[in-house]
Design a protein around this nucleic acid. Sequence first.
DNA 1: CGCTATGTTGATCCATATCAATAAGTGTGG
DNA 2: CCACACTTATTGATATGGATCAACATAGCG
Lengths: 237, 237
Amino acid sequence: MVRLGMPESDYPDIRELHLFSEMADEPFMTLMRGAYVQNFPPRIELITEGDSSDFLHIVLSGSVDLFSSWNGRETSMATAWPVSTFILAATIKDAPYLMSARTLEKSRIALVPSQDVRAVFDADQGFARAIVSELAQCYRSVIKAQKDLKLRSSLERLANHLLQQQKHSGDVNEFDLQFEKRRLASVLGMTPENLSRAFKALHPYGVEIDGSHVRIADLGELKRFAKPDPLIDDPST
Amino acid sequence: MVRLGMPESDYPDIRELHLFSEMADEPFMTLMRGAYVQNFPPRIELITEGDSSDFLHIVLSGSVDLFSSWNGRETSMATAWPVSTFILAATIKDAPYLMSARTLEKSRIALVPSQDVRAVFDADQGFARAIVSELAQCYRSVIKAQKDLKLRSSLERLANHLLQQQKHSGDVNEFDLQFEKRRLASVLGMTPENLSRAFKALHPYGVEIDGSHVRIADLGELKRFAKPDPLIDDPST
DNA sequence: CGCTATGTTGATCCATATCAATAAGTGTGG
DNA sequence: CCACACTTATTGATATGGATCAACATAGCG
């Protein structure tokens, strides 16, 4: 785990991020000069819920699990992929993290001091607009997740998740799960045992599983069962 | 239901809203001049999920149920009280509403054209900061709700809800439920029947119910069961 | 005052969790 | 490269939280 000021070679990647692409050069450089980049091995806890939010985190490569605990139980809330930020809301409100974060694999993470983010927000209109847009996007994602949880059974959630993955994989009829099944179960709000059975229960709708490989034999049939809804399942809207 | 430009007598109330208190006078007046105020009877559907977001809504009096539907099922997602906004994220992203809204009682609602909100966001830094703060707050609320749903049983959710209400009522040991039980059940993600039984199941922990009146005989005992957590139950953090 | 929606209670069913045993990977050190 | 340990995945048996269905009580409300 190496800690150092951000190498300038990372600037272009970050600059392309929706969050930073519309801002002026000077405030961008202010942010970058205060930032760090770190390389983390898998399964390292980056932040712990309840801690104060000193840095905005940006996933440059790898992936990060956002999870929460209560009373000895734990659940996966979301996954952060490159190139995106996490714990933006805590940074902005200068409030404690509501979720913990751990690397899922070897990951490269940029850390931007929260106070710099707040200061540059006031100084650069393009950045302000991007922050608000990103935050609104995050909000809408959680609302969709909550609808998914409250309105659907676990089998329906799995079916719709598979449809999302299928679309994400370029509308082919075979693809690999991007999560460990154990985590997928947690994300979908069920136990690993129940996930195993849910996969079998989707067999009549043309879903075949081999390890982490998924084949959807009859997309129409699966859709008929899953009843996907853009207001729950579309990542973009 | 009367529709008219906003009477100037409403300006001070709205001006005090966190969202509008830090902005300059001129952009505030721009927003107000384009705004409408309407009085609605109870149980009127104000917006329907999927519709495009033409107005930012502000509850001036009464209360509004935010709910969602899928495949014939329906669930209450949140309640908007005076004085607060709703569907801010949709307004900002210029995206379709993810939730529907209906008045719970006779309510007075201000409607500010979404395009004015977006325009003034760019023009006034105080407003921009307030928007981002409000949005971050909304995001954190949903995250807390999702943790509540995924980490707790319905009985634990009810117990913690009662503790919140008790605190909200000024730390007295008796208070009235602010929701219809039917809605409370939906908010907590359970059926009305199950809620009835859950109240009884909390009796051993010192909870007594008479209609919508709640008495908490032993706060310590209830807390011992509910294990409230500021990162889930504190509305402020 | 009666109609209609809400709330309660009981009986039953079903989805999902839990517990337990086994199998299959996956990574590590000899 | 293999043996071992450890984690993950599967499967079966069982328990339980919560939903559903039905009957009845109750409370608002026109």
